[in-house]
Simulated scan of single mutants.
Amino acid sequence: MNPVLFNRKRTVRTTITIAALIVIAFIVLLLSMNTGFTKMSPLEVLRTLFGGGTPRDELILFEFRLPRIVIALLVGTGLAIAGAILQGVSRNALADPGILGINSGAGLAVVLFVVTNPMRESASPMFMPFLALVGGFAAAAIIYLMAYKKDKGISSSRLVLSGIALAAGINALMIVLTLQLDPNEFNFIATWQAGSIWGSSWKFVLALLPWIVILLPAALWKARQLNVFSLGDDTATGLGSYLNKQRLLLLIIAVALSASCVAVSGGIGFIGLLGPHIARRLVGPRYEHVIPVSALIGAVLLLIADMVGRTLMENAEIPAGVMVAIIGGPYFLYLLARSRT
């Protein structure tokens, strides 16, 4: 087939896919606004959105549901893009911020701050992503050193195994911490580890939004570089790519995205694994197509997980991270088994 015609068809397919995902996201958003512990009919939601609702309806919709919905969309977007970048840089289909331990490192920094700072209630939410960034970069540096081999560079298999080991170690440390905490602090760590969207207010939306707005275009700008990485290090170097410099820059973008999301959502895993995999099946391997489609898939997946978790049980809430893990865990095992063949 003519390459120009093939690329044109791929672009059209991507455009249709993005449009369909936007429609799906809008439908799920409307359904999510109608669901929760307090029932609101679709008519009540629409009336409240246009300023005709009761004070009670306005409080429920604008102060409780909408901030949480927006955060779910932003976090799903950020984690999926981070996963796509990590998979491209490492050339490993199993790479994901949660599996590699980056989310655990970022979360540990946030948890340590919350449980050791007596003034945590007055701390600005804007500070949380920067704190998570320190933990995320520390975890990424440890994983990089563990996966690096002299004369061979980064081994993708060692990268994944090192990340899994580090995440297990950090989670064990959190368990030790919980043994020394009072009930309120224990509940916070348990909530974070389960992947509940705990920062569900407009101030947390404002804390996360700038990171997504800045880093999403940066990821799209580097999409062509990810395409080059997929050809292998030797080919990438032959094409004039500054390999280590570009890899470091892309890792910084991925860690910043995942860490800022963890700061308001807790330890949600597998979004960065599922989003890019589904995107590649829909639009092919080129990252200028994979990144935006991954972002939309991640947003829809997390919003659905949060909505189902809030409504599945009548008197209890299942964290969104648990709902995602129900799907992502078996899929990860499937990919792991397939990678050994």
Rank of each mutant, 00 (worst) to 15 (best):
K39L: 13
K39V: 14
K39F: 14
S41Y: 01
P42R: 03
E44K: 12
V45A: 10
V45L: 07
L46Q: 10
L46F: 14
L49G: 10
L49D: 12
F50G: 04
G52C: 08
T54K: 06
P55Y: 02
R56K: 07
R56Q: 12
R56V: 12
E58I: 11
L59M: 12
L59A: 15
I60H: 09
L61C: 10
F62P: 04
F64Q: 11
R65H: 09
I69G: 03
V70W: 14
I71W: 05
L73Y: 09
L73E: 01
L74V: 00
V75S: 11
G76K: 07
G78A: 10
G78S: 12
L79G: 09
L79I: 06
L79N: 11
A80M: 01
A80F: 07
A80K: 04
I81W: 11
A82G: 11
A82E: 13
A82M: 10
G83N: 00
A84C: 06
A84M: 03
A84K: 02
A84G: 13
A84D: 06
G88V: 06
V89A: 05
V89W: 08
S90C: 07
S90A: 15
S90G: 01
N92I: 15
A93L: 14
D96F: 01
I99S: 07
I102L: 15
N103I: 08
G105F: 10
A106Q: 05
L108N: 04
A109V: 05
V110K: 03
V110L: 12
V111I: 15
F113W: 14
F113A: 05
V114P: 08
V114T: 14
T116N: 14
P118W: 07
M119Q: 15
R120E: 14
R120Y: 15
E121N: 15
E121T: 11
S122L: 15
A123S: 13
A123C: 14
S124Q: 05
S124V: 08
M126I: 12
F127D: 06
F127I: 15
M128E: 04
M128R: 04
P129R: 04
L131A: 14
A132R: 09
A132D: 06
L133H: 08
V134D: 06
G135F: 09
G135C: 08
G135Q: 09
G135P: 07
G135A: 13
F137Y: 14
A138C: 14
A141P: 02
I142G: 12
Y144Q: 06
Y144R: 02
Y144A: 05
Y144M: 11
M146F: 08
Y148H: 06
K149P: 04
K149Y: 08
K149Q: 15
K150V: 06
K150E: 03
D151S: 13
K152F: 05
G153S: 06
G153F: 03
I154Y: 03
S155R: 00
S155P: 02
S157T: 03
R158F: 00
R158I: 00
L159R: 07
L159P: 08
V160A: 01
L161C: 03
L161Y: 02
L161F: 00
S162I: 00
G163I: 02
G163S: 00
I164H: 07
A165S: 15
A167F: 11
A168W: 10
G169D: 01
G169N: 05
I170M: 04
I170L: 10
N171D: 13
A172K: 06
M174G: 12
M174P: 10
T178A: 03
Q180F: 15
P183Q: 13
N184F: 10
